[in-house]
């Protein structure tokens, strides 16, 4: 099957630090792919290049076979890539429902309409989306009042509103309690499967990753060191070394 997203020899350096160094991977249509790695491995840099926030130094990014290199976040959004942020961002001075309504209006290309009030526009669709993420009861609350976990849910609804082909989620469960984490990821996974959306997400919690990701790619110091399903990754010596150290110190003490 033709991959939806293809990353070829992606490179980015900050000063002398090679944050992303010759990374290549592909994401198949409908796949739920996790990108993991210790702090500073280059996950967020990688993400910001996919999303158009950062320009790569080299390599290519293909979406549906076409290069999206050099496009800004908004143009990439137009080609069907939605994203959520590590520190969730929604619009605080709007109600929860209005947040989703604006995302729907933006998707319909009606941002520059100066006359017809927003109030009744796409209200049903917005409420339906909020129902999907379990936020319908709070639709009329000002978004700034929400608890952080709920902000993440609304952000997911915003990202889904533009009916993306590919959803990029940067640490979707950062700052959440363990139970909330599992709930949110299960929810996201169910919603994208229903809609046929492919997902690439970064994550720190190994529990979440091994429980939900269909395939995992591992970055360390900017390089791709392993990829495969949960069992393969857990057994990979390079991954073990990255996460647990080589064990040489421990071995020496035992000896």
């Amino acid at each position: 099957m033709k991959p939806l997203l293809e990353v070829r020899n992606l490179r980015k350096a900050f000063g002398g630090v090679r944050a992303v160094d010759d990374v290549s991977f592909a994401l198949a249509e409908g796949e739920f792919l996790a990108l993991i790695g210790p702090n500073g491995a280059g996950k967020s840099t990688c993400f910001n290049m996919l999303n158009g926030q950062l320009a790569p130094d080299g390599g290519d990014i293909l979406l549906g076979g076409k290069s999206i290199l050099g496009l800004g976040p908004r143009q990439i959004w137009k080609r069907g890539v939605g994203r959520t942020f590590q520190v969730a961002a929604i619009w605080g001075s709007l109600t929860v429902c209005e947040n989703v309504q604006i995302a729907l209006l933006a998707h319909a290309g009606e941002v520059f309409r100066l006359w017809r009030p927003v109030a009744a526009r796409y209200r049903e669709e917005a409420l339906a989306l909020l129902g999907d993420v379990g936020m319908q009861a709070q639709a009329q609350r000002p978004a700034r009042e929400l608890a952080y976990g709920d902000v993440k849910r609304v952000e997911l609804a915003l990202a889904l509103a533009s009916r993306p082909r590919l959803l990029l989620m940067d640490e979707p469960t950062a700052g959440m309690a363990p139970r909330e984490r599992n709930e949110l990821i299960s929810l996201a996974r169910r919603l994208v499967r229903e809609r046929g959306i492919s997902v690439l997400f970064t994550e720190h919690s190994m529990d979440v990753v091994f429980a939900h990701a269909e395939r995992i790619i591992v970055l360390a110091r900017g390089r791709l060191i392993a990829q495969g399903d949960a069992a393969t990754i857990q057994a990979d010596p390079k991954v073990q070394e990255t996460y647990f150290g080589s064990g040489r110190m421990l071995a020496r003490r035992r000896a």
């Binding site: 137009k78 961002a89 619009w91 933006a106 520059f112 309409r113 100066l114 009030p117 927003v118």
Partner: peptide, 27 residues
């Protein structure tokens, strides 16, 4: 009237979180 229309909401969205607004397709 403009403030109650999509344009006015887009203005406020751009003020509240420009990053989110751009990623949602608001210029």
């Amino acid at each position: 009237r403009i403030l109650f229309a999509p344009f006015g909401y887009a203005m406020r969205a751009g003020r509240d979180s420009p990053l989110r607004a751009e990623a949602t397709g608001i210029a």
